[in-house]
Design a protein around this nucleic acid. Sequence first.
DNA 1: CTATTCGTTTAACATAGGATAAATAATCAC
DNA 2: GTGATTATTTATCCTATGTTAAACGAATAG
Lengths: 196, 196
Amino acid sequence: MVKTDKMDVMDLLFQYFRKYNRLSKEAEDAIEEISKLIAIKKNEDLQSIGHTCRTIYFINKGSARIHYFKDGIDITESFAFENNIIARVESLLTGKTSRKAIQILEDSEVVAINATQLFKLYDIYPEIERLFRKIFEAAYVDTVNRIEAIQFHSAEERYDALINDAPNVILRVPLKYISSYLGITQVSLSRIRGMK
Amino acid sequence: MVKTDKMDVMDLLFQYFRKYNRLSKEAEDAIEEISKLIAIKKNEDLQSIGHTCRTIYFINKGSARIHYFKDGIDITESFAFENNIIARVESLLTGKTSRKAIQILEDSEVVAINATQLFKLYDIYPEIERLFRKIFEAAYVDTVNRIEAIQFHSAEERYDALINDAPNVILRVPLKYISSYLGITQVSLSRIRGMK
DNA sequence: CTATTCGTTTAACATAGGATAAATAATCAC
DNA sequence: GTGATTATTTATCCTATGTTAAACGAATAG
């Protein structure tokens, strides 16, 4: 495996950022300083349950999910693929211990941004604070919309919507991780697929 | 009815703000300038469906809900009571037309903050941008947690949790508005209540 | 290549909550 | 206060999804 150069990856990340807010060169450099490129293998935990989340990840290659255990059952909260960020916001934004883990689903390469230092940069570069304000605002809106989808569509409709909106998920993620994301059991998901 | 003085209400609002981020006097004054005190009667729409949301409301007295129509059925997205803000974020934060309305549930007094002007203040007062960043981050985290509650608790558990977390809702809001908030029909809600 | 483990599907049965309709109860207009 | 409207409950029946168990298929280690 050829290891990707950090600079190339940071460029991708900054392109991603530009969709939300354009940064000055100095601000980009400041973010680069607090970022690390990490290679990590399938099925490993990028972050495990039980400590406060102080990192925001950008996925360069591969995929990951946030999951937790509810009454001993493994529940997927969300998926993320290349060119997107992933973070356990209920811990990152509150300082509380996270009950959730980030698990890598395919051999991956991610940029880990040190959030403690990032939040300090907010005071020096309001443009960075604005960038992440916008990123989290967009994620907030997505989450509000997701509630509607969960509450008022049947399991089958949710499955169809997932295929439409995120075909990657079905192609690249084991079904056992998808069912809980859809809010159903693995058996129900299998039944729904069987009807097609 | 004695009309409340705007200054008293703004003080309450600034106290609310202080829980998130303390503002300078100048920043508070700037917000006061773009805020209006509005009295509005039960069952009226504070904002109706179909235009872009450009206002953030703070409820001084009374209560409200955000709702929309799904296949002709009235769905409640959220409730708000005195000393809290309410806004249709899927429109406010994206600029898209809102499919949702804000309906007043009891005779109310609210502060209407002009969001177009507020967002302009972000450039002049980073402290105001930070304040609303924190407000929306907290709302985001609440929403992430709500998904878990919706997806993995029974209707009865969700009802019990509501009584616990927001007894106001049950006491002050018609049941017909509560059932859709819980993701069930009015008949199911009634059945659940009947079992107690 | 084979054995073992892990993931997925199928089957049979149970149940929470939806749909419809009708009966009460509460609220509102006059 | 009376009648009309609106909100809530109760009853019946029905369906989607849960539960458990077993069968089948795919991936992995050695």
